[in-house]
Write a protein that binds this DNA or RNA. Structure first.
Lengths: 153, 153
DNA sequence: ACTATATAGTGCGATATCGTATTATATGCA
DNA sequence: TGCATATAATACGATATCGCACTATATAGT
């Protein structure tokens, strides 16, 4: 026999609940490794600019992180204040700007990643890579579905 | 041959990255179903009071959600302002209070869950329950490990 | 070209989250 | 008992996030 509707609902509910708790706990542990006053949102932008490419516009970044553009404006202003990025005019659009990394921005990101190494190694002792590999594809599928659902608005 | 250290690091990194994106997207979709002005954090407290039990203290709730107690004070004050909970003195401790649900609070939570039904059903068509079942145990293990890591402080 | 509409970025106000400090009460120990 | 310390909740200030509205520039339709 199959599960009841309410059991199914509870199953999905527990999934999103676990995801929410893991996000919160892992973010707190991660932010404890960042220099004082910096948050995961700041790191995320720097990391994205290195992993993908810098020179992107604030709006493109806002969409990449699924945050309102006002939020991205604020995040970028913090990074710029600390000289981790530079904002330059967009030569292709007079309304727009481009976000470029500074050397200090690259260092900040690389130091943050390096400082995570021991934590990841410790975690990997308890939860080995093959178990992570078994989870990621499913999560990626779900992320893409939710992303598509958002675009339907 | 085994993966290099940097490959392993990238694997764990991608796991937490996917978790973070899923949390953000699912929370946004969920909050769109809540009455205007209410956030997932408000719902989460009401849901906890029903699922576990009400009459708990603010500090116990703060620990359950892994948030600073000042954050819980604020969340509870919002719920109390809307008459979704009641704060009463703790008969066992003069410094403390107990948080009790009102009928309106129970209704709010039940309505929120009911309004999620169609969304879950739609999602279940694309990502069936057995695939969710395959993910939850691993996530639960990870959540418990992170929880334990936090307690070591 | 001219005008209407759309888009990029930001200013501003509201709420959320979090750290620090404060107050009231409880607990432990001499 | 009396005092030092610990704990529960909150006040307060700082920053983050977000919605709304505004300005400047670009694009589309005529």
């Amino acid at each position: 026999m199959t599960k009841s509707d309410s059991e199914t609902l509870a199953l999905y509910f527990s999934f999103f609940n676990e995801v929410g708790i893991i996000e919160q706990l892992s973010r707190a542990l991660f932010e404890a490794r960042l220099p004082d006053g910096f948050l995961a949102s700041h790191f995320a932008v720097l990391n994205h600019l290195i992993r993908v490419r810098d020179g992107q516009t604030p709006l493109v970044l806002a969409r990449a992180f699924q945050v309102p553009k006002t939020t991205m404006t604020h995040t970028l202003s913090v990074l710029e204040k600390h000289r981790l990025i530079e904002m330059r005019p967009n030569p292709k659009d007079g309304r727009s700007k481009c976000v470029w990394l500074t050397a200090a921005g690259r260092d900040f990101r690389n130091n943050a990643i390096a400082s995570l190494g021991p934590d990841i190694a410790e975690f990997a002792k308890q939860f080995p890579p093959d178990r992570i590999e078994a989870l990621v594809p499913g999560l990626t599928d779900i992320r893409q579905m939710l992303d598509a659902a958002r675009d339907e608005d």
